[in-house]
Every structure is written in C-alpha cells, then in structure tokens.
C-alpha cells in the first residue's frame, strides 16, 4: 500500500521538518513579529526545536522498528484508515503551504473593515503603562504612547504645542475631514487574532494625496480634537515623508 506505516511516518516527519523550518525562517528573518507579540519569541524558539525533535523521533529508521511501533501504537486506531491519514497529512501541511507560498504581509488597512479603527484605546490591557508614556520625551512617543498619554493625563491640554514625531500607515477614516487622514498602527497583545487598529488624526492641506496603506513619517505639533465624544490627540503636520514598512509594523501594548 502506498500509505503504509513507513511512508506515513516519513510524510509526518517531513511535515514536522517543514513546520520547524518555517518557524526557524520566521525567527531568523524577523517576520515572526508580523504574526505574534515579541514577548512570545521564546515560545516559538522552543516550538521550532520541538518540531525538529519530533521529526527525528518518528523518522523511520528500519523496517523492524516501524513494524514494532505499529503494534504499540496507542489509541488512534481510527487514523489507520488510509483516507483518514491522507486528510490528516493534508490538513497539518496547510500551515507549511500557506506559510511558504503566500507572500508575507503584515495586517493592513483592509483588516480595518472587520477589526475597526480606534482613536482612544480604552482596552484594559493598556491601562498600566500610561505613566510610562507620560514620562517619555514628546518626540519619542509613538501613536500608542500618545493615545495612552491622553487617556492617562488629567488635563490633555498640557500637550498642546508639543512636538510630535510618529510613523504609521495612512488611513482615510470616514469620520475625518477632507484635509485630514489617520496615521495608524495595529496593536496586538498576543497574536494578530487580537490585533486592533489605533491612530491619530493628521491635519494636512494635501491629505487627499496620500493613499491608504502608504507608510509615512509625520512631524508636527499636537492639537486637541474631539472624536466620538473623547478628547484625542491630533497632529498638525509640518512635514510628511514616505517611508518603507518598518521591520516591526505592530505596536505591543
């Protein structure tokens, strides 16, 4: 039979090697953080090692050993059907296929349609770092820091006129004026499944010329704005520069 235990083991081992290779590639290239929060790096390194260890364990060495193992196989008798095995292998190879063949791309504005766009991150996970954002020099704050600083501050008008220097993607929100656009970032606490887009409105006479998804570096001064009933930061742009997608496109609260 084509899918005898030996060949099945061989394919299993190859898929595990593929998964290990995929994880390793993500770690080495740094694109791992297009998918998960950087605090889970250790987990993914352990996972990559685990895949290689598992692959060597089930790599069929000799016919005898495979045969012996077959008899000792624990309670997965229902996987012994050949078509069942085929499905098992196909499904588990999906992450390898998608991972290697689909172009690597972080979330962009097309995800905002379903995930939404927020100008005030009131999420519980964001609370405790407000004081850190306040103690930062103004021009070192990123989009998330500014929103936090505004959330945390008793009187946001203290920020008026402070220099702002932020990087993010352009997003034309329906809720802003024609001479404005949003500079947004995705923030995620675990993986892209929980990512949400946040941003700051930019005041610029040529706002209409900037296209959605273009990454820009904006310098300007802070103004107050009211958005959805909340006081949020807004930047009056002095200069807007086109920049490539940064190696770390997301922010980690």
């Amino acid at each position: 039979m084509f899918l005898n235990t030996r060949n099945y083991r061989l394919l299993q081992a190859l898929i595990l090697l593929g998964l290990g290779a995929y994880f390793t590639w993500k770690i080495v290239s740094g694109t791992l953080f297009f998918y998960i929060n950087e605090r889970f790096l250790w987990l993914i390194i352990a996972g990559a090692i685990g895949f290689f260890v598992l692959a060597q364990a089930i790599w069929p060495r000799s016919a005898v050993e495979v045969d012996e193992h077959h008899h000792h196989d624990h309670d997965h008798e229902h996987t012994h059907g050949s078509s069942n095995r085929v499905w098992l292998l196909l499904i588990v190879s999906m992450p390898v296929l998608f991972g290697f063949l689909v172009p690597v791309q972080p979330l962009d504005t097309s995800a905002i349609e379903t995930k939404g766009f927020s100008t005030n991150a009131t999420l519980a996970s964001l609370n405790d770092s407000g004081s850190v954002a306040l103690s930062q020099p103004a021009d070192e704050r990123n989009v998330l820091d500014w929103i936090r600083a505004f959330n945390y501050s008793e009187d946001p008008s203290e920020f008026i006129g402070e220099p702002a220097d932020v990087v993010g993607f352009v997003y034309h929100d329906d809720r802003v004026d024609d001479d404005q656009f949003m500079v947004g970032r995705f923030a995620l606490s675990c993986c892209v499944a929980d990512a949400f887009a946040i941003g700051v409105a930019i005041d610029s006479p040529d706002a209409g010329e900037w296209k959605d998804n273009q990454w820009v570096h904006v310098r300007g001064t802070i103004e107050l704005a009211t958005f959805d009933g909340e006081i949020v930061p807004q930047i009056v742009a002095e200069s807007i520069k086109e920049v490539p997608v940064p190696p770390q496109p997301y922010l980690f609260p």
Partner: peptide, 10 residues
C-alpha cells in the same frame, strides 16, 4: 493568511 498563521504559530 496572516491571521490564520498568527493563530497557528502562537
């Protein structure tokens, strides 16, 4: 693809 791989990797 990005979300699928994100959940899987994690």
């Amino acid at each position: 693809t990005t979300i699928f791989l994100g959940i899987f990797i994690e």
